[in-house]
Design a protein around this nucleic acid. Structure first.
Length: 568
RNA sequence: CGGGGUGUGGCUCAGUCCGGUUAGAGCGCGUGGUUUGGGACCAUGAGGUCGGAGGUUCGAAUCCUCUCACCCCGACCA
């Protein structure tokens, strides 16, 4: 491609609204433009990179035996009503009506749509297993789109759904996707951290997220320093064993604590470790009040709590409910009470000796609180967030925290959709059987952004060769028309050799051309200037580093191949 | 939704506090010329309802009210 006839609107300065490097560089290199908040235009160069990622995903999905579909992006409300998600999805789903008042969703995901087609396509166990996928636009009314293409309202996703006869089959489908995903990201030149993840309200057992470590990541990961335990914070467990307090159990006593409500206030007031307090927080789980009791030095992991409760909706109870449940203003709740409220205790609570907790009376706390004697631990779960430094649940070594961008997610869906949408096939015995599903997503746009995030320097992008929009950046530094003609020949040679060449034939100063080449970040740069016109010397430079290599035209193709081979 | 911030030519920004001629700079763009191995130089030119609406005033980019958009932090969300 000749740049003189291409669209390559590079920017010398950082756009004022881009705060992360991938967004900045994608704008500056002329890959994308913003249409409005959370919506982006792909310019030709950006589209080429996007298509490379898509091609790799397709190849690997097909190789794994999945079948590509193309689904409507506007999906009928009836479909969502069947699964029950028309009501449960909430405002993140765009809903529209046609002129007759019929309701539709701009699909944020396609479980229903795929389940419905597959239902019409299968009737026997012989039709399974089946893995179907598409690469298509998704719409989500994000509360806050940000980081350019990393979190947008409209994005491209590869979503796949597997259907199997039983859990064993599902596991095979799942493992096939685990392998495919590793292959896909590896081929994209993207180093990902597969972590154990929560399956959310979907239920199901296994779940793995493919994360790219990044300061701008929106998820927190806990990684063990010595074994292979990796989990996102929503799921992460940690080894228990901490005993708080000590000595002989003291008598339960009331302590006047006027206006001392928060854990920090309490720690200052009682002059003791925050872990000695039993923080008691009232939630509404599907509308019913519950009290969660955790050590004061720990944060509640609401996902773990919701899972323990098997609740679909969990929210902090409003003050009025707290007062009703505890009989005291907010800040004085505790498990030592006669009131009948469902209580869940974190695993660490039983290890507290002579703890301190709210007395369910205004301005009063109990000290010398001992589990078992002063209250009964009925329901005990892991309810707290793991943080950096906590011991690994597998090996006990301290874990560290990293932020990550989620680029892929695979999980076992279970029967949620096949049951609610009444999918069944006949098994070998001729009995109706409900297939079990798996679900596998990749955020395509954010994969591109993550690659840029992972591979760049202060001058621009450094594309892995598999994703680079072109293979070779041919920089022609010419003055005379005859020189330009000679460069055309060179461009022709390289194109015929099978390279995708971005050829800078512009009448511009060398500085501009080199700067643009660095920004665009194609893996191999070939420079043809004075040396070429005088002695036939060409220069090859790899964007990934290394020295400038001089070659003659006869050895050029070979040298480029070598250079590309040396690139990630 | 709460808090904070920004809207001035294609881009990055100054000017706004303290109202006062034809609204500025750099980059980019057009033309002519000189240049040409790391974002050249000279000359000349085009391009702006100062986000929008209303108001105050002799006079508004500047003050007031409303509104829209965008960015950041948080909340929310699977």
């Amino acid at each position: 491609m000749r740049i003189s006839r291409y669209i390559l609107p590079t920017l010398k300065e950082d756009p004022s609204d881009a705060v992360v490097s991938s967004h900045r560089l994608m704008m500056r290199a002329g890959l994308i433009r913003k249409e409005s908040a959370g919506m982006y235009v792909y310019l030709p160069l950006g589209l080429r990179a996007l298509r490379k990622v898509i091609a790799i995903i397709k190849e690997e999905m097909d190789a794994a035996g999945a079948h590509e579909f193309l689904m409507p992006e506007m999906t009928s409300a009836d479909l969502w009503r069947e699964s029950g998600r028309w009501d449960s999805m909430g405002p993140e789903m765009f809903r529209i009506r046609d002129r007759n008042g019929l309701e539709y969703a701009l699909a944020p995901t396609h479980e229903e749509a795929f389940t419905a087609v597959v239902r019409s396509l299968i009737s026997s166990y012989r039709d399974l297993p089946l893995n179907v996928y598409q690469i298509n636009t998704k719409f989500r009314d994000e509360i806050r789109p940000r980081y350019g293409v990393i979190r947008s309202k409209e994005f491209i996703m590869k979503d796949a759904y597997s259907f199997d006869m039983d859990e064993k089959g599902l596991d095979e489908s799942y493992q096939a996707m685990r392998r495919a995903y590793r292959q896909i990201f590896q081929r994209c030149g993207l180093e990902t951290i597969p972590v154990q993840a929560d399956t959310g309200s979907m239920g199901g057992s296994d779940s793995e997220e493919f994360m790219v470590a990044s300061e701008v990541g929106e998820e927190v990961l806990l990684l063990c320093g010595s074994c292979d335990y990796k989990a996102n914070q929503e799921k992460a467990e940690f080894r228990r064993g901490d005993r708080k307090g000590g000595g002989a159990p003291e008598a339960l006593r009331e302590v006047s604590t006027p206006d001392v409500k928060t854990i920090a206030d309490l720690a200052a007031f009682f002059q003791c470790d925050e872990g000695l307090f039993l923080k008691s927080i009232v939630y509404l789980a599907d509308g019913a009040p519950v009290m969660a009791v955790v050590p004061g030095n720990r944060e509640i992991n609401e996902l773990k709590l919701a899972r323990a409760l098997k609740a679909t909706a969990l929210e902090l109870a409003p003050d009025s409910v707290v007062e009703e449940v505890t009989g005291a203003p907010v800040g004085f709740a505790g498990p030592v009470t006669d009131k009948k409220v469902r209580m869940l205790f974190d695993l660490a609570v039983k290890g507290v000796v002579n703890g301190i907790t709210g007395a369910n009376k205004k301005d009063l706390h109990y000290a010398g609180v001992n589990p078992g004697r002063d209250f009964t631990i009925g329901e005990e779960y892991d309810l707290t967030k793991a943080v950096a430094g906590d011991p690994c649940p597998k090996c006990g070594s301290p874990m560290r925290e990293t932020k990550g961008i989620e680029v892929g997610h695979i999980f076992k869906l279970g029967y949620k959709y096949t049951k609610s949408m009444k999918v069944s096939v006949l098994n070998e015995q001729g009995r109706e059987t409900t297939p079990i599903m798996g679900c596998y997503g990749i955020g395509v746009n954010r994969t591109v952004a993550a690659i840029v995030e992972q591979h760049h320097d202060d001058k621009g992008i450094i594309w892995p060769k598999a994703i680079a929009p072109f293979d070779v950046h041919l920089v022609g530094i010419w003055k005379e028309e005859q020189e330009l003609r000679a460069l055309e020949g060179l461009y022709d040679t390289l194109s015929k050799a099978g390279f995708e060449v971005l050829y800078d034939d512009r009448k511009a100063s060398p500085g501009i051309k080199f700067a643009d080449a660095d920004l665009a970040g194609l893996p191999v740069r070939v420079t043809a200037g004075k040396g070429y016109f005088q002695t036939g010397d060409l220069e090859i430079k790899c964007r990934w580093g290394g020295e400038v290599v001089k070659v003659k035209e006869s050895g050029l193709v070979e040298a480029i191949r070598d250079s590309l081979a040396g690139c990630p």
